[in-house]
Each structure stands twice: as C-alpha cells, then as structure tokens.
Simulated assay, not measured.
Amino acid sequence: MAVMAIHVITGASSGIGAAVARRLHARGDELVLHARDAGRAKELLAEFPGARTLVGDLADPDKLSWAFSHQTLPDRVDSLLHIAGVVDLHPVGELTPKSWRHQLNVNLIAPAELTRLLLPQVRAARGHVLFVNSGAGLRASADWSAYAASKHGLKALADSLRQEEHGAGVRVTSVYPGRTASPMQAKVHQQEGQEYDPEQWIDPESVATTILMAIDLPRDAEVIDLSVRPGS
C-alpha cells in the first residue's frame, strides 16, 4: 500500500497557498495547514475535510517552538511549503522599525524557524522545502525596501539550506512569482494608489502548477530557482 504524502503548508487560506492546498487535497494527499489562531484553523478544517492544522503566529516567531510543543507534529514531512507572506510598501524615509520587523518576522524569520522545527521530519522523508519568494527577492524597487529585504533574505536561507541538507536527500526550491492575482496584490495596488484588475496578473492556479511540478519531480532532479512571470 502506497504511503500518502504529507504536506505542511503556510498561507493556505488565500491566493497561491489556497490553490496549492486545493490541488493536493483533491488528489488525496495529507495536509497539515498552518493557521495563525484557532479561529483560522477551524475555517481551514471546514474547507479541507480530513486535514490537520498547526497553530502559531508567524508574526511572533519566538513563540512558534512553544506553540508547536503543545501540538502533535507529523512523523514525517514530504514537503514543507512556505507560501504565507505580508507586504507593507513605504519609502525608506517613512518605514518604522515595527513595519520592518513585521515583514522580516513573517517573510523570513518564521520560515527559518518553521524549517528548523520540522527539519527532522523533512529529513526522515527525504522531503522537499519550497519557499514562495517573489520577483522582489531578486531586485528591489522604490517603496519595496523592507519587503524586498525579507525576500532577498529568504533566497539566502534557501541557498544555504540546500547546501547544508543536500547530503540528507532534502531538496530545496525557491519560486519567484511575478505579480499574482490575490488579496495581497489587491493591497499592493491600494498602497500604490492604482486600480486593481486581477485579469492583468498571474492566476494563482498557474503558480500552483509550477509548485506541484517542482515537488512532484522524480528524485533524479531538483528545481532550484524558478521564476514565473505574467504572460502576454
């Protein structure tokens, strides 16, 4: 009897994360969905029957270890999919330490801590750690400094982890989507003072397709960096 793959997913409540969770749920894989609090966990369980949840606030990574110590972690993790993220656009002259910390905590430090806490289970499965990064993780634009810094850091985290865990059979992928139609993108347009038309941007389902391709790839190959851009 084939063993069901187990996926831990952050950001499964909307956008790319929801699209990935729906695909994996539909094919019968086992989901462990991260939730910020008990209320969000209840919503996710209603949407994905049979899934499990892992509750902890990514904005407060110092407390994740304590939060997880009171919950049952899976014995093995075939893929750890870091998809959650936050953005707050301001010029450097207006960014407060609070805004810097919030974006760095959610986008970089929490993924690092979540990876640390689940790495034994990923190693046990010779599994996959995938980070949904951003085009901003490769280049920074005006008003994007804090977000881009968090995503540049996420690229460094992935690159180091890949070298460290290669011998353990762990694969590590960074996906760099361009602008994707999502609640986050709606917020970005609002902060930019622009009209938001989701039809102009990448469908989250298209990014989900690339993520599943990366984690489903046979063991003889590894996708390292994958950029996804809006089509013509």
Rank of each mutant, 00 (worst) to 15 (best):
R179K: 14
E165N: 05
E94C: 07
Q185L: 15
Q163C: 04
A168L: 09
S160A: 14
G93N: 14
A112G: 02
L117S: 00
A110M: 06
K151Y: 03
I109D: 00
G127A: 08
R126F: 03
Q103P: 06
A148D: 02
R162M: 02
D143L: 13
Q185G: 14
K151E: 04
T180K: 04
H166T: 13
Q185V: 14
H128I: 06
S174V: 10
V122S: 02
E165T: 10
S150R: 07
A181L: 00
D159E: 11
T96Q: 11
L114A: 01
A124C: 12
G178L: 09
Y176N: 02
A125K: 14
W144T: 00
S99P: 01
L130G: 05
R123W: 08
R116K: 10
N107E: 03
K155M: 14
G178S: 07
S182H: 03
G169S: 09
R162N: 03
Q103Y: 08
R116A: 08
T115H: 02
V132C: 10
Y147L: 01
V106F: 04
L95G: 10
Q185K: 06
P120D: 03
L117M: 04
A158P: 03
V122M: 10
T180H: 12
H152W: 14
A112K: 00
R116S: 06
G137R: 01
A168H: 15
G193M: 09
T180P: 06
H152P: 04
A148F: 06
I109L: 06
S134A: 11
E113Y: 06
L154C: 00
L119W: 08
M184K: 02
A181M: 00
E165K: 10
Q191L: 07
R171M: 11
H128S: 03
A125R: 12
Q190A: 15
A125F: 10
L108N: 01
S145G: 08
G137Y: 05
T96H: 11
A149C: 12
Q185Y: 11
H166L: 12
E165V: 15
A142S: 08
S174D: 04
Q190F: 13
A125C: 13
T115N: 05
V92R: 05
L138A: 12
D159P: 01
P111V: 11
P111Y: 01
L104H: 03
V129F: 03
D143K: 05
R101P: 06
L130K: 12
F131D: 02
T96K: 14
H90G: 08
R126H: 11
H128F: 09
S174T: 10
S150H: 03
P97Y: 08
A168T: 13
G193N: 09
G167C: 15
A156T: 15
V172M: 05
V170R: 13
L108H: 01
Q103K: 04
K187Y: 08
G193A: 09
E94G: 07
V170S: 05
G167S: 12
R123S: 05
A136V: 09
Y147S: 00
K98V: 14
T115Q: 01
L114Y: 01
H102V: 07
H90V: 13
R116D: 06
G137M: 01
G178V: 12
K151R: 09
